[in-house]
Amino acid sequence: MCLGVPGRVISIHDYTAVVDFWGVRKDVRLDIVDEPVVPGDYILNHVGFAIRRIAPESVAETLELYEMLLRENAGGEDDLMALDVRGEIAGAS
């Protein structure tokens, strides 16, 4: 329902941040962001406003959460696959 895209803050002037989204830059307003933001932080953009500061460690935390789900629910035959996948995650990070 609401298109949201994460980006990295490059610079900040007053309530406006220049944010990098996969290589393109766009001004994003900081009027309603939940926490103070500094350059280097990640934010979630919706209609040109930052609606959330994304803590840097949270991506790894989410991946960990998914891994746990897999671990908890791993049945016999898929263990290998899950292991494989965990290996890929470890390799990627």
Binding site: D20, W22, Y42, N73, D78, M81, V85, E88
Partner: peptide, 24 residues
């Protein structure tokens, strides 16, 4: 960067889908 594309891994998606099937 916080790479959302990490959440588009088809292999992991299939693992999750297998888990889903088992739960059902």
């Amino acid at each position: 960067m916080t790479n959302e594309l990490q959440f588009r891994d088809p292999a992991l998606a299939r693992s999750l889908a297998a888990t889903l099937a088992r739960l059902v």
